[in-house]
Design a protein around this nucleic acid. Structure first.
Lengths: 117, 117
DNA sequence: GGAAAGCGTAACCTACTGGTTACGCGTCAG
DNA sequence: CTGACGCGTAACCAGTAGGTTACGCTTTCC
């Protein structure tokens, strides 16, 4: 399911559906890609459960399915605002590593370069 | 960035890092795939900003970056608990479509099959 | 100083993804 | 009934993602 929101086109479709329910054609005409391409994106969204579809005459209306998004949010929740526990454990672990190292090499200063800030 | 959480291996790495900070090797040995493969997953996570890395001696420690997750959560937020607005608009739109249709065809009953429940 | 440890990168191959055009099927309009 | 509309599917193709093995660089240990 997480793979469904990986594609930018699909994410934009989801944003569009946030406002109102839309037919396949209405969705497709807002993109520069062909209609079948959009149709397949819609199928992926359908299979992922992020979207529900309803046949109305010869049109097919798409709407968001809140349930799937709730699942996503549920997965994401533990990652936002780390509980503070980990930071302490990290510090402890680093300390262990450093003391073990400095047990021998006395002259080497403790250096650690931060990346990907 | 959303593409980074599409892969199941990367998601599992993130879960692992939720508890404590880990070195590349510690991460790699928990998977059946080769170490270089894990290394590239880590690069993807690094480039996506979901993970920060710090060089400690000859090891490279990885830790979650809360900022990126906050962004994700921010994007996801508008999708959980729809505001109620859309449902009303949907109902209205459906009504318009039906009345226009039934203006001519009197006998046809309003039918709409739900899919992908 | 030299061997080993810890990681990343390069080159390569396969599998999937996402795009296209051509087509088929059901529904509405006249 | 027949033509147009709306939409999905099939077949095909190029680009990317993710796996592997081989290799190189930096840091630690003796």
């Amino acid at each position: 399911m997480a793979g469904a929101i990986a594609d930018p086109v699909r994410r934009e479709i989801l944003v569009m559906l946030r406002d109102r329910r839309l037919s396949a054609g209405e969705i497709a005409e807002r993109f520069d890609i062909s209609r079948p391409a959009v149709s397949r994106h819609l199928r992926v969204l359908r299979n992922s459960g992020l979207v529900r579809d309803e046949l109305v005459g010869r049109r097919r209306l798409y709407a968001l399915d809140a349930g799937a998004f709730a699942e996503l949010a549920e997965w994401l929740a533990p990652f936002v605002q780390p509980s503070g526990w980990e930071r302490r454990l990290d510090a402890l672990e680093t300390e262990i590593y450093r003391t073990r190292r400095e047990h021998r090499a006395r002259g080497a200063a403790g250096q650690a370069k931060e990346n990907t800030a």
